[in-house]
Computed example of a mutant assay.
Amino acid sequence: MTGPHALKPLLLAFPGPLRDRLVGAVLSGEKTATTGLLVEYEAENEELPEAGERSALIDSAGREVAVVEVTEVRVLPLVEADLRLALDEGEGYRSVAEWREAHERFWHSEEMREGLGDPDFTVDDGTMLVVERFRVVEVLSPGVG
C-alpha cells in the first residue's frame, strides 16, 4: 500500500468534469495513454517520465485513486500522432482529426495558456508532444490515504 505523497501525482486535465471522465476511463481500462506538451515540462522544469515509473492518479477532489505505471514515453511532433494513440486515449475518438481538434481546444484554453505563462501560445504540426502509455497497477479505495 502506498502512503500519501509516496508517489508523484498523475494529474489529467484540470479538476472538474473532464478530469473525472479521464480518471474513470483509466480505471475502466479504456484509457492507456495520455498526451502532453513538451513545453509544459520545460515551463515547469520537470523531467520527462520514464518507463517503469509509478504515479498516483489523482481525482478532482485531490484523492489518490490508483497507482499507474508508465510503460512507454515518446516525444514526437503533433503531425505524427496516429490513430492508435487517438484510440488508446480512451475518450471515444474515432479519428486522428477528432483527437487533434479536442486536444488543440484544451491546449489553447485560457487555463493552459495561463499555466504556460504564454497568453499567445498556439500549436501546429511541429509542436512537440510527450506521449505516455501506462497501465493501472493498483486501484486504491476512495478516501484512503
Rank of each mutant, 00 (worst) to 15 (best):
R113T: 03
L48E: 00
A43Y: 10
V144A: 15
A61V: 07
M1P: 07
V130H: 01
V130E: 01
L76P: 12
V65E: 08
S28P: 02
D20W: 08
E44L: 07
F14Y: 14
F121V: 03
V96I: 10
T127Y: 01
E64Y: 03
R21K: 10
W99H: 00
R19I: 14
E53S: 10
G145F: 00
L37S: 04
G24E: 15
E46G: 08
R105K: 14
P15K: 07
P17I: 10
E44Y: 05
R21N: 09
E98W: 01
E89K: 08
D120V: 03
L18N: 05
W99F: 15
V67W: 01
V75M: 10
A97H: 13
I58K: 03
A66N: 14
A33N: 03
P15R: 06
P49G: 10
A33D: 01
A43V: 12
P17M: 04
P15H: 09
V67R: 00
G117R: 05
K8G: 14
V79P: 04
L7I: 05
P77S: 14
M128L: 15
A51M: 07
D59L: 03
P77Q: 13
V136C: 09
E110H: 07
R133H: 15
H108N: 13
E64K: 04
R135I: 06
A102H: 05
